[in-house]
Nucleic acid binder design. Structure first.
Lengths: 193, 193
DNA sequence: CCCTTTTCACCTAGGTGGTAAGAT
DNA sequence: ATCTTACCACCTAGGTGAAAAGGG
């Protein structure tokens, strides 16, 4: 019913263990989450949201060209913030008509970034994370009722797991970012103009 | 209860009869509509929308340095399209917290621009228009009921009237645009770098 | 020592009016 | 003649990884 549109790209990164930069002011994901959906009620209203949960309790270190799990995380895990797709709320017909892209979602390491509804997800560096997407049917009362499991569908794609970093560790990941992210075009070897 | 935030700027243009460019792919307004609002119910939900109505039935021509009304409009007026503020729907608390800006609203002369929810308002060149803003209280049923006059408040600011053009006619208007629109900075006389 | 922050050149993306060509 | 369109140089705005500086 819901599928990952840029699955092939995600797998290219996943093969090398995806890394995502986090900064204080927020950094976009690349690849970003892009979904297609089918089977919704065209007339019904839905919110579509993404959250990011800890995929693994360990701290990770990049050593000898490999990621290795280290000590257990000492910090208690703060619940990951939810990112609501900017088109939300909208009809099933709307969501099924076109790509559902989370290209403007930003990741941050600034826990104080919750000020005034800035849409960012706060993570801890060197931990492994798993994004999830939720399709929330809005009840006729106008409010979503997340306590009713029939009204929320959750999808998880393991190929979108990543380790949060403040600087890239694996040069293979860096090269994939440069090769595929349009904003990094200036770093491509075969870039002539 | 609702006021025009950039009223002084609008008056600078209004004094010379404001002109707004319309193009096929859509052109932003400058100045753009920017409002502040007070007195809403912080918990209640509202849509805030702008429409543009004909301010005058005449065609206008710029001749001898002045705008003069010409023949009556022969075309039957098609109802102006509504532009819904991208934050809609939202709570009274949200709308009262910050500027309500319509900076991304675009004007077009392409009547076929209604394709697939492109958010543009279609106008006819050389006619005079009046923007309006509507604050629509959303009923508990979740749908706005625009047939109930108690639930819609409409505000009109005469200083935001403008004539739609495909190229500027009055050089005084052109100069004001260059002086105040950041995107036209390259045309300023005192621009050194 | 390892991780984070800041700054930078370089890019994408797209909003300006000017200008010349096109359309009626 | 008058109005419209297409293209342009020039700008704003902001997303990249590299590299150097900062911090514990």
């Amino acid at each position: 019913q819901l599928y990952l549109r840029n699955r092939a790209l995600w797998f290219k990164f996943h093969r090398h263990q995806t890394e995502m930069i986090i900064t204080k002011q927020g950094r976009r994901m690349f690849p970003f989450l892009s979904f297609g959906v089918a089977g919704l009620d065209p007339m019904c209203h839905y919110n579509i949201v993404v959250d990011v949960i800890l995929a693994d309790p360990s701290h990770w270190r990049f050593q000898g060209g490999r990621w290795i799990p280290s000590s257990r995380a000492d910090t208690n895990v703060t619940g990951s913030r939810v990112y609501v797709h900017p088109d939300s709320p909208n009809t099933g017909a709307h969501w099924m008509r076109q790509e559902i892209s989370f290209g403007k979602l930003k990741l941050t390491n600034n826990k104080g970034a919750y000020s005034n509804s800035t849409q960012m997800i706060a993570l801890q560096s060197l931990q492994k994370y798993q994004p999830r997407v939720h399709v929330i049917e809005i009840s006729k009362g106008g409010d979503e009722d997340t306590s009713d499991p029939d009204r929320v569908q959750t999808f998880t794609f393991p190929e979108t797991q990543f380790i949060a970093v403040t600087a890239y560790q694996n040069t293979a990941i860096t090269q994939l970012k440069i090769d595929h992210n349009p904003f990094a075009k200036g770093f491509r070897d075969n870039y002539d103009k």
